[in-house]
Design a protein around this nucleic acid. Structure first.
Length: 907
RNA sequence: GGGCGGUUAGCUCAGCGGUAGAGCGUCUCGCUUACACCGAGAAUGUCGGGGGUUCGAUCCCCUCACCGCCCACCA
């Protein structure tokens, strides 16, 4: 006998181990089995499982288990990511906290060694946490982005792209993170609004030049008054950059400054003469219309400088301190200190014209949180534009489909405006760039050092000294190869042949650019076809107030704590049920408790079946059942199977969860088991045996259908129900086939009959409650106007009606006896003998209210049907439906009015 | 500045052209031999505002308001 409740803690580890040991996590080797493949979005190897992972991986596991049960060769390929900056940052922090020397003092080899140690120490955590979630990954295929195979793939891709001209080295402005002292990509920059100011500076014109500057305007905006100026005003949010100015730009059509183009200004403090140039970039409507140009520290200015031939003077060190290109007094000063100093100096010397306080967007490093500087360096770039074109096409043509579809717009938008991807990072933890620098600026990009030397020897005709590039690659470079590198590429492995392209990618919208788009680009370029058929974008999990969870806010919900407390299945079901499309998931514990209760409900339903001897019967054929409730529930199983299958194919996880919940709780437990009780306790042995067998069969179907979402409780019940006798289980539930049941098992007559029964019981219960008939009272029911069909139903379900509606007796009558209240029973009317309990006034109120409801319905529908346009243009079935509705409402109203009259007569 | 999404019962959300739904919460009953992590019943909505299309609009179109997110060169 089952315990009263399910004990997840005891069961989960045992079942997980049993699944893994059984080999169920490995894809079927049946060559006829169609593959179903998911590659996991690799979590940071040193990370730990947060609720977002729990959602993402639950959905992947639901899909994997579903397709596995459907007979596919299901592969869910797990692995972890080395997460360059994030991991390096953690280890650096650890070193600092322990009072150790920093990484630069430690040296590269020692530091990298230290990171590997940290990986070894913490690296198993996240995969073990995935196991606790029930993830049925094929751990024998687990990969790590820095393992040897994946590193080989990275080298091969880098070299090939280089040789195809799709990857190149360039000197241009990059987003420079002064804390990590590395370049980062555009995507790693976060714009944040901060308080700032526009400082308006007056740059004096050289050589005594002056001009007339308008200072007053008429209504039409024409200048009416001018003043003579010997300076030009420019505004900046970063005063310190003026030390690197090499020009001032004005718009070519700007009348105010027309005569100044070609003249020079003398840069304050520095004393450098810099030219005033004409460039479309200068916007006459902004500020003074003149803009200072710092080509080495501003993306726009870099372009202006190139067009106008202005030099780029770098004034910063990698830590963002002023370098020796600036006057001695400022050298070594931090950029923000320099800002203050320059402003103070400008004020003192009188060339600070105005301070305009404002808020503006300032770029910050997404990891470091510090302000990013545009910085002129040599880096490696991928020609993302070229790679993006086929990636766009793949989604445009539907080779790859996003679910929900609207995310395709986001994908298109980014890819259509894509910029070169800076892939080199001045970090130590990551894939070393396979490039070697030789004499005379030569570069050799090869997969091995030997090959690089060989190429150099060939070029120079002699042995030369090469220096390997010190940089590593952006983490996302290796992640971009994940769908094929994990399968063994560039080796021609059977896995590559069988499992590429993969089926569905399940991931969050926050990495559509970082990851999905780049996998699309690399997958198509190197494999010839897109890496996934479907990209399912899951929602973002937020706290119950809708706030994004973050450690600093302290609102992080730990999925493992929830699993400990409420069980893995409850957490999984909650996440599945709440994963509606493209919505934030606001997670509350209450909700999870509700689904824990759902598990308990199923557990107890099984317990009830056990207590009533509902043992599975060898060779039982549901097609053969005779009892209406059994015919009915058989059909309900078929319907539910259809709904769940369709939902998981889509996938529409919330719909699958909803169907399961409704069927198991509201249909099977609330009605079928209740309806089965009189039979199970009755004398009809044949009906009893049939109902027992049916119950056991339905339970089996429930366990199968629910298994992808709630794997533990279902597997446990699968095991426990087998102990009761019946045929031996062929396999664990995880390896059991998804059912295919004939639609013909849906019996319309049985459904109608049980529907009638359920409605009748509902009506009577409702009536009893409203009239305060005590639960112990057993009123009689007289049925008026029962046709043959109703009479048959009454006799077949007499016992059920008596017990479920708590009736004393049921009889047929020609007219409603006195002292009764009406019950709608299809075409017949029940008369519930409630005289002794009745509160006449309350009953009158009730009937009047109900009549009013029907009257408004009659008015509404009648109006519709009286509209010739409606009759002429609406679909015929809709018209018929309305006619029926009207007839029903009128009939019901008549019955109730009759009852009201009787009541009036009584009083 | 550009784009995307949202606004439906107290809360969280589903529905997306033909009688407004679920879960939770609330209220009232109930220890009926599976389950109080339960059962029975009930209440609750100008489906953000305003136009339009339609026989008919929560659902389609336009517009406004508010909320959230993403992208964008910090004059």
């Amino acid at each position: 006998m089952l315990e009263k409740t399910f004990d997840p803690k005891a069961v989960e580890p045992r079942l997980y181990a049993a699944w893994e040991a059984s080999g169920a996590f490995k894809p079927s080797e049946d060559p006829n089995a169609e593959p179903f493949v998911i590659v996991i979005p690799p979590p940071n190897v040193t990370g730990s499982l947060h609720i977002g992972h729990a959602l993402n991986n639950t959905l992947q596991d639901v899909l994997t288990r579903f397709h596995r049960m459907r007979g596919k060769a299901a592969l869910w390929l797990p692995g972890t990511d080395h997460a360059g900056i994030a991991t390096q940052m953690v280890v650096e922090r650890q070193l600092a906290a322990a009072g150790n020397i920093g990484r630069r003092d430690m040296g590269r080899d020692a530091f990298v060694e230290r990171v590997w140690e940290w990986k070894a120490e913490s690296g198993g955590a996240i995969t073990n946490q995935l196991r606790r979630l029930g993830a049925s990954c094929d751990w024998s295929r687990e990969r790590f982005t820095l393992d040897e195979g994946l590193s080989a793939a990275v080298r091969k891709v880098f070299v090939q792209l280089y040789k195809q001209g799709l990857l190149y080295r360039d000197k241009r402005l990059v987003n420079w993170d002064p804390q990590f002292q590395t370049a980062i990509s555009d995507l790693e920059v976060e714009q944040k609004e901060v308080d700032g100011a526009y400082w308006h500076f007056a740059y004096p014109l050289a050589d005594g030049v002056t001009y007339q500057h308008p200072v007053a305007f008429d209504d039409e905006g024409k200048p009416t008054q001018f003043e003579t100026r010997d300076y030009i005003v420019v505004a900046t949010t970063r005063p310190e950059t003026m030390l690197g100015d090499t020009g001032v730009a004005v718009h070519p059509s700007d009348e105010r400054y027309k005569d100044l183009v070609g003249k020079d200004v003398v840069l304050p403090i520095v004393g450098r003469r810099i030219p005033i140039v004409a460039d479309d970039y200068a916007d006459p409507t902004k500020g003074s219309g003149a803009v200072k140009i710092t080509p080495a520290h501003d993306f726009n200015d870099f372009g202006v400088g190139k067009r106008a031939g202005l030099p780029a003077i770098n004034i910063l060190t990698p830590e963002a301190k002023l370098n020796d290109a600036v006057p001695a007094e400022y050298q070594g000063m931090d950029r923000f200190a320099a800002r203050k100093a320059i402003v103070a100096r400008a004020e003192e010397e009188g060339w600070l014209k105005e301070i305009e306080k404002t808020k503006h967007m300032v770029p910050h490093g997404d990891r470091s949180g510090v302000v990013i500087e545009p910085y002129l360096t040599d880096q490696w770039y991928v020609d993302a534009y070229t790679l993006a074109q086929p990636a766009l096409k793949a989604v445009e043509t539907g080779e790859t489909v996003f679910e929900p579809r609207h995310w395709e717009k986001t994908y298109f938008e980014w890819l259509r405006n894509i910029e070169p991807w800076c892939v080199s990072r001045q970090l130590w933890w990551g894939h070393r760039i396979p490039a070697w620098f030789g004499p005379e600026g030569s570069i050799f990009v090869e997969e091995t050092e030997e090959a690089a030397y060989a190429a150099a020897r060939e070029q120079f005709g002699a042995d030369v000294v090469l220096n390997r590039d010190e940089d590593v690659l952006d983490t996302w470079f290796s992640s971009a190869l994940w769908p094929f590198s994990t399968l063994g590429w560039p080796e021609k492995t059977p896995d590559v042949a069988r499992f590429y392209p993969t089926s569905t990618l399940v991931t969050g919208f926050d990495i559509i650019f970082f990851w999905v788009a780049r996998m699309m680009m690399m997958g198509i370029h190197f494999m010839g076809e897109a890496p996934f058929k479907q990209v399912f974008i899951n929602a973002l999990v937020r706290d119950e107030k809708g706030a994004k969870m973050s450690k600093s806010k302290g609102n992080v919900i730990d999925p493992l704590a929830l699993i400990d407390e409420l069980g893995c299945d409850a957490v999984r079901f909650t996440l599945t049920a709440m994963s509606g499309q493209a919505r934030d998931i606001k997670l509350s514990k209450q909700r999870i408790e509700g689904y824990r209760n759902f598990g308990t409900k199923l557990w107890n339903a099984t317990r009830f079946a056990q207590m009533n001897g509902c043992v599975r019967v060898e060779g039982f054929d549901p097609a053969s059942v005779a009892q209406p409730i059994n015919k009915w529930i058989r059909g309900e199983v078929v319907k539910t199977l259809g709904e769940v299958t369709k939902a998981l194919e889509a996938p529409a996880f919330d719909e699958a969860a909803g169907s399961l919940y409704r069927f198991i709780w509201n249909v099977f437990c609330d009605w079928y088991l209740e309806l089965a009780k009189p039979i199970l306790n009755g004398e009809d042995e044949a009906a009893k045996a049939e109902t027992r067998a049916t119950t056991a069969w339905v339970l089996d179907q429930i366990l199968i259908l629910l298994h992808p979402v709630m794997p533990f409780i279902t597997e446990e019940l699968w095991d426990k129900t087998a102990e009761e006798g019946g045929p031996a289980r062929q396999a664990m539930l995880i390896s059991t086939s998804w059912p295919e049941l004939p639609e013909s098992w849906i019996d319309a007559d049985a459904a109608a009959e049980i529907g009638w029964l359920v409605d009748t019981v509902g009506e009577i219960r409702s009536l009893r409650a409203e009239m305060n008939v005590p639960p112990s009272a057993k009123p009689a029911l007289a049925v008026v106007g029962a046709g043959e069909g109703t009479q048959g139903r009454l006799s077949r379900h007499r016992d059920l009606l008596l017990s479920l509606a708590r009736l004393g007796e049921i009889s047929l009558a020609d007219a409603a006896p006195a002292g009764t209240a009406p019950v709608v029973m299809g075409e017949a009317t029940g008369a519930l003998g409630v005289a002794e309990f009745i509160d006449v006034a309350a009953e009158k109120t009730r009937l009047t209210k109900e009549i009013a409801g029907h009257v408004s319905e009659i008015e509404k529908t009648g109006k519709k049907l009286g509209n010739p346009d409606f009759l002429a243009r609406a679909k015929p079935e809709v018209v018929d439906e309305n006619r029926e509705r009207l007839a029903e409402a009128e009939a019901a109203k008549a019955k109730l009015e009759a009852a009201l009259q009787r009541l009036a007569a009584m009083a």
